[in-house]
């Protein structure tokens, strides 16, 4: 990759923001599996592989599947966040592969959050 100038930095920011904005990027959903040390130890890898398997099976290419670090609530790991276009993100807790499959079908494909596994909706506070 070429060395960046300050201008490039701004361009990356803009491009990346639109890539990741579901609307502008043409995506329908984004799923983040939280994989810090705690999450992995609690079984986040199983959740991730169940998810990727379902996405592949469904043959969908407009879903972003990604990972991130610790989500902070270690007691309820593994955690994952599902964001459907035009809806607030929903965070699920105490997951396993099976629950993830169910969430995939109900929430990601069907658009109905799976309330029994959900912890919270919305974003965390930053200011």
């Amino acid at each position: 990759m070429a060395r960046l100038t300050i201008d490039d930095l701004r361009k990356i920011k803009e491009k990346q923001s639109s890539d990741f904005s579901l609307r502008k990027g043409g995506y329908s959903a984004k799923v983040t599996v939280h994989m810090g040390t705690c999450g992995i130890a609690a079984g986040a890898r199983d959740v991730m592989s169940a998810l990727t398997e379902e996405v592949t099976k469904a043959g969908m290419d407009n879903i972003i599947v990604t990972t991130s670090g610790c989500a902070g609530l270690c007691a309820r790991e593994p955690l994952a966040t599902v964001e459907i276009i035009n809806h607030p993100p929903v965070r699920y807790c105490d997951l396993n592969g099976e629950k993830m499959r169910e969430i995939f079908k109900e929430h990601i494909l069907g658009g109905n959050p799976v309330e029994k596994y959900a912890l919270v909706r919305g974003c965390e506070t930053t200011y």
Partner: peptide, 15 residues
């Protein structure tokens, strides 16, 4: 540093 999962043991690389 995995206090959220306490008590913890690690065998080889697995927590």
């Amino acid at each position: 540093g995995a206090c959220g999962l306490a008590p913890v043991m690690v065998i080889d690389e697995e927590t």
